[in-house]
Amino acid sequence: MAVVTFPLHRSKTSAMPYYGYDHVTAVAIGGRLLASGVPAHSGYGEIIEPDWRAPRVRVVRPGDRAAQPIRRAVWSFWSIPYRRQHGRHWPSDYFHALSWILSFRLAARLFPTTALVTDDWGHELLVDRLRLPFDDISLTLNGLAGQDPSWWALGKLHAYREQREPFLHIDNDVFLWPGFPASGLSGEVIAQNPEHAPASDAGYYRPSAVAAAIRSTGGFLPKEFSEYTGETALCTGVVGGTAIPLLRRYADLGIRMVESAENQAAWRRLAPLEDYNLVVEQYLLGALCWGGAATDVQCVFGSQEDSYRDDDRRFTHLIASAKSDLHYMRLLERRVRNHFPADFEIARRRFGDQ
């Protein structure tokens, strides 16, 4: 997984800057917290193969400006996996709400249009209770009520497929700080960073296991997936781009892999299914980008290795179990309280007794 820095500052005033590091810089690496002097390459399931090199991508950097930058930020929230506690989760609804506030409010300053794809429960939480003013709201994820909530990425795939103009989808545990180069985002496909995804079952992707199970049961396996011989996925903490037909096709293939009746026998063999969300979301996207015609891929970081470095990209992603670490949660609480006090009071009144 990628490593990204969480900006820290000791000031308690309302004028506290959004970024800048002190002597104990925290980083998220697959949920592990590192301080000064702790080796960065602790890893989160990676297969350490020094000979592997990430494909070259176009890296967006501070100061970049595109002729037609992406103007639409999208979030998605399929509430059922959250409510049934599938996947990695926040220690309480209070911190989950604070994360939504910070992710939305920061990105809304960078993108002219904001959109939410959710279900009725998500609308009640984010719009009615937290009062986040999304410009566009879709309730199409109500249609996923019969799907297995182990597939927590399914709501994201449906949100990608729904888009009709260039967009950037932002996970609610991703924070784009002031200075993030949103004006430079123009790639056909945009993602957080390339990620090593070996075919072997030793890593956390295990695409060969998925392919073998689907083939043995006569299910549906996308041609791009089946023929892909590369070892690169794309981390989708942020994902989107300008190539809308390609992105909608990618989402459609991922949805079909998960939902089609012909694949259910294979998925029963592979349970627990939480382990395979990354295959149908991140590995499949890598296969579509690098398994066929060349695609303009733009990323925040050029590789996992690059994301270990200390250069400030104004970007934080609380990956995996970092979301359940109370050290991070208190930093999150402080940020929202100091910079978005009205939102903080709403969250505190609703959930602060947890």
Results as ranks from 00 to 15, higher is better:
residue 21 Y to Q: 14
residue 154 L to T: 10
residue 60 V to A: 11
residue 195 E to M: 10
residue 172 N to L: 09
residue 322 A to K: 01
residue 57 V to W: 03
residue 238 V to T: 10
residue 180 F to G: 00
residue 336 V to N: 05
residue 267 W to H: 12
residue 125 L to F: 08
residue 66 A to S: 14
residue 248 R to G: 13
residue 11 S to V: 07
residue 220 F to P: 00
residue 347 A to R: 11
residue 264 Q to I: 10
residue 169 H to T: 03
residue 24 V to A: 01
residue 56 R to E: 15
residue 85 Q to Y: 08
residue 16 M to K: 15
residue 255 I to W: 02
residue 41 H to G: 00
residue 94 Y to K: 05
residue 106 L to V: 07
residue 126 L to Y: 04
residue 268 R to D: 15
residue 99 S to H: 04
residue 256 R to E: 13
residue 326 L to A: 05
residue 65 R to M: 11
residue 147 Q to F: 05
residue 118 T to R: 02
residue 251 A to W: 00
residue 328 Y to D: 06
residue 140 T to N: 14
residue 122 G to V: 09
residue 29 I to M: 09
residue 3 V to H: 02
residue 240 G to F: 01
residue 122 G to D: 12
residue 160 Y to H: 08
residue 202 A to K: 15
residue 314 R to I: 00
residue 13 T to Q: 11
residue 107 A to E: 01
residue 246 L to N: 04
residue 241 G to H: 05
residue 241 G to P: 06
residue 105 R to A: 13
residue 267 W to T: 06
residue 81 P to F: 05
residue 149 P to G: 09
residue 173 D to H: 02
residue 97 A to F: 02
residue 116 L to P: 06
residue 140 T to A: 14
residue 30 G to I: 09
residue 198 P to S: 08
residue 130 L to T: 05
residue 84 R to K: 14
residue 221 L to M: 13
residue 66 A to N: 10
residue 180 F to T: 03
residue 171 D to Q: 09
residue 132 L to T: 10
residue 287 A to D: 04
residue 206 R to I: 04
residue 149 P to N: 12
residue 255 I to N: 07
residue 66 A to L: 11
residue 161 R to G: 15
residue 342 A to N: 03
residue 265 A to E: 15
residue 217 T to F: 01
residue 340 F to A: 08
residue 103 S to C: 02
residue 13 T to H: 07
residue 80 I to K: 13
residue 11 S to C: 04
residue 130 L to A: 04
residue 338 N to G: 03
residue 100 W to E: 00
residue 143 G to V: 02
residue 178 P to D: 08
residue 22 D to G: 07
residue 287 A to G: 08
residue 220 F to L: 06
residue 331 L to V: 07
residue 228 Y to R: 01
residue 250 Y to M: 03
residue 65 R to L: 12
residue 91 P to Y: 05
